[in-house]
Design a protein around this nucleic acid. Structure first.
Lengths: 252, 252
DNA sequence: CGCAATATTGACCACTCTCAATGAGGGTGG
DNA sequence: CCACCCTCATTGAGAGTGGTCAATATTGCG
């Protein structure tokens, strides 16, 4: 059974500061030798700049990326030119796990601001996972976490109104920054209003209006990219409000 | 790199007919001895009946379930009593991968109709994956696939109108049944209208109205649980229609 | 047989999208 | 260094999709 230790993506985040997955595994029982082996397969890449692509839809899958600093968005394009933003990826987070199955990327990863990433070649990672059981264990957990994250997103998009979506989104950013040692209440939004709206299934205008309203209500202060969360409790309250529809499908 | 073979969940589905994961691995290079080992760790359980629980939110994670026959829904409950259906799981599909990380289930799995499942104890599976590299490989693919599936769902909920959601849902069922060797155009809906609506982020009434309209338009014929898809091309056409909102967030 | 759960249908309305115009930065080039 | 432009953000007005409420089948189960 997986031990419910507190060790998870958090630790990976710390690890990534050193452009290494080492600390991801250390607490799982990896010895120094194994850590070194893991470090050795990781490619350090030079910093990427705004609008660079880490990979595009259809690209051959080379490996997974760990964000060191900066931020990345992943999205899928449709033929008609419309996009769907799948996620924003902050330092310490992993990108590309969805490409393992098919061997090619199903989405595009675009750099939002100057960003440093590590590339972990998948073939080597898989081989190493066979040799280092605790690495395999951690990989399973990482992917499991990803599935859980997406499930949470499904709830947000399926049942939440605009207020709840934006509040949830802001709290998510807050928490993720906090875990990384940054301020939980003051940070910069590296993505545009349009990208936020796209991600949350809302029109840009709705996002903009909500920012204005939340600000009027004293919940936050926002000035272009800079945002300050003044009342986290209020935001949490918004997230917990009653769902848009009270489905009674728990019948049978 | 993962080889883009056609071997994937499909094969697992066939495998599950024998209440075994064996055939999942056979094409990946497992020899007979390994297959036997895999078979040995799988628990065959007696059939479950409508409204039984495979597991509930908070239950300790014992292992993943493979659906042999029947169907399962997974959902998350909120304090206020409302639910969010996360998915419907047909024969050959896997449930519970999201619980690996935390060691306890984050959602509830409820039986929709008389259903047979296999329980694959996770600890044993993980150990075996270390010893059988191609099993580990397949596990990674399985989880990756799950992530991709959920991403697709995000698009559906984020950008699609009611017509597109229902059409996509029906085609998904169609395809999954087809892969299992059942009819792609005629099957029974084991879930209620309410559960469909909940899953798709729509009100029950909307689902009901859409069924009626699709029927009037000659796209399908539906009688309570029984459904017949008369015009698959029309359904596909509905899925490909223009998105609800034409976001231009692919600016930068 | 009767009640409860499910499904269907109609009327109404609210949330959020769409369309449109304006404002505010940020970058580029003269 | 300023003018211009282009993108992004904000704000307003109107419309439409789909949710809510309610009444009525329909079915299935005890």
């Amino acid at each position: 059974m997986t031990k419910p230790t507190v060790v998870t993506l958090n630790d990976l985040k710390v690890a990534c500061e050193n452009c290494s997955l080492s600390r991801l595994c250390l607490p799982m029982g990896l010895d120094e030798k194994d850590v070194t082996r893991l470090d050795q397969i990781i490619n350090r890449t030079k910093p990427h700049h705004r609008n660079d692509y880490l990979f595009r839809e259809g690209d051959t899958f080379k490996g997974i990326y760990a964000v060191k600093t900066g931020s990345i968005k992943t999205y899928i394009s449709r033929e008609d030119g419309s996009d769907q933003v799948l996620g924003f990826h902050l330092p310490g987070e992993i990108i590309g796990l969805d490409a393992i199955e098919t061997g090619s990327h199903g989405c595009t990863a675009k750099v939002l601001e100057t960003t440093a990433v590590c590339l972990i070649p998948y073939e080597k990672l898989e081989k190493l996972s066979v040799e280092i059981p605790s690495l395999q264990h951690q990989m399973f957990r990482l992917m499991s976490r990803e599935i859980t994250n997406e499930s949470n997103m499904l709830i947000l998009l399926g049942k939440r109104n605009a207020d709840e979506r934006l509040a949830t989104f802001l709290l998510s950013l807050s928490q993720r920054y906090k875990q990384r040692g940054f301020s939980a209440t003051e940070f910069n939004l590296s993505m545009s209003r349009n990208e936020i709206g796209n991600y949350l299934g809302l029109a840009v205008e709705t996002v903009s209006r909500l920012f204005t309203r939340f600000q009027d209500e004293g919940i936050l202060k926002v000035e272009r990219k800079h945002i300050e969360l003044l009342d986290l409790e209020a935001l949490k309250g918004i997230c917990d409000s009653s769902p848009r529809q009270n489905n009674h499908q728990n019948s049978a």
